[in-house]
Simulated scan of single mutants.
Amino acid sequence: MKALIQRVSHASVTVNGECTGAIDQGILVLLGVEKTDDRAKADKLLKKVLGYRIFSDEEGKMNLNLQQVNGGLLVVSQFTLVADTDKGLRPSFSSGASPALGEELYDYFVEQASTIHNPVASGRFGADMKVSLLNDGPVTFMLEVS
């Protein structure tokens, strides 16, 4: 399971012109699910996302996590994160989860996040989404769990 996280001043996601989720200061998570992923990996990744220290303290050092700054969490599914790009000029998605497993684990990740943290917003699994954000820094990290 992979999460590309971006520290944002604000972010939103729309589907067919309708805003399905928006946050102010916080983290935008682009979430990729692989076929070997399960709920235990989702839990581990969520703990890492919420605890990752990417916000500045009073001295300007990245020492604070999302919960310490009371930031928002916007989770958007992005199956292209799990693409194999080693060969050729076309990505392979052979390691990606099936749509059923991808949706199950994406929904689980969002549900678990909502029980631990507030506010949490999300996109719509499998939809053609438009994501808008103001990356703060820019600060972007790829987090993976195995």
Results as ranks from 00 to 15, higher is better:
residue 1 M to F: 08
residue 2 K to Q: 10
residue 3 A to G: 10
residue 6 Q to A: 07
residue 6 Q to W: 10
residue 6 Q to D: 02
residue 7 R to Q: 08
residue 7 R to L: 05
residue 8 V to D: 07
residue 8 V to Q: 05
residue 11 A to H: 13
residue 13 V to H: 11
residue 14 T to R: 15
residue 17 G to C: 10
residue 17 G to T: 09
residue 17 G to W: 10
residue 17 G to D: 13
residue 23 I to T: 02
residue 29 V to F: 03
residue 31 L to M: 04
residue 31 L to Y: 06
residue 32 G to P: 04
residue 34 E to G: 09
residue 34 E to L: 07
residue 35 K to W: 12
residue 37 D to R: 09
residue 37 D to C: 02
residue 38 D to R: 12
residue 38 D to G: 14
residue 39 R to P: 07
residue 40 A to V: 05
residue 43 D to P: 13
residue 43 D to A: 09
residue 44 K to N: 06
residue 45 L to G: 04
residue 47 K to R: 13
residue 48 K to P: 03
residue 49 V to S: 05
residue 50 L to C: 08
residue 52 Y to C: 15
residue 52 Y to L: 06
residue 52 Y to D: 11
residue 54 I to Q: 00
residue 55 F to L: 11
residue 61 K to H: 09
residue 62 M to F: 12
residue 63 N to Q: 14
residue 63 N to C: 11
residue 63 N to Y: 06
residue 64 L to Q: 12
residue 68 Q to K: 13
residue 70 N to V: 00
residue 73 L to K: 12
residue 78 Q to R: 14
residue 80 T to H: 08
residue 81 L to H: 01
residue 83 A to S: 14
residue 83 A to V: 01
residue 83 A to F: 00
residue 84 D to H: 09
residue 84 D to S: 03
residue 84 D to F: 00
residue 85 T to M: 04
residue 90 R to T: 04
residue 90 R to K: 15
residue 93 F to R: 13
residue 97 A to V: 06
residue 97 A to W: 14
residue 100 A to I: 14
residue 101 L to G: 04
residue 103 E to W: 04
residue 105 L to S: 02
residue 105 L to H: 08
residue 106 Y to W: 11
residue 106 Y to T: 00
residue 107 D to Q: 12
residue 108 Y to C: 01
residue 109 F to K: 01
residue 109 F to Q: 00
residue 110 V to Q: 07
residue 110 V to P: 12
residue 114 S to I: 05
residue 115 T to F: 00
residue 115 T to H: 03
residue 116 I to D: 10
residue 121 A to P: 12
residue 121 A to S: 14
residue 122 S to A: 14
residue 124 R to Y: 02
residue 125 F to K: 11
residue 125 F to I: 05
residue 127 A to Q: 14
residue 128 D to T: 03
residue 128 D to M: 13
residue 129 M to G: 08
residue 131 V to R: 10
residue 133 L to P: 02
residue 137 G to H: 13
residue 137 G to N: 12
residue 140 T to A: 07
residue 141 F to A: 08
residue 142 M to I: 07
residue 143 L to Y: 12
residue 143 L to H: 08
residue 143 L to M: 11
residue 144 E to V: 00
residue 144 E to N: 11
residue 145 V to H: 03
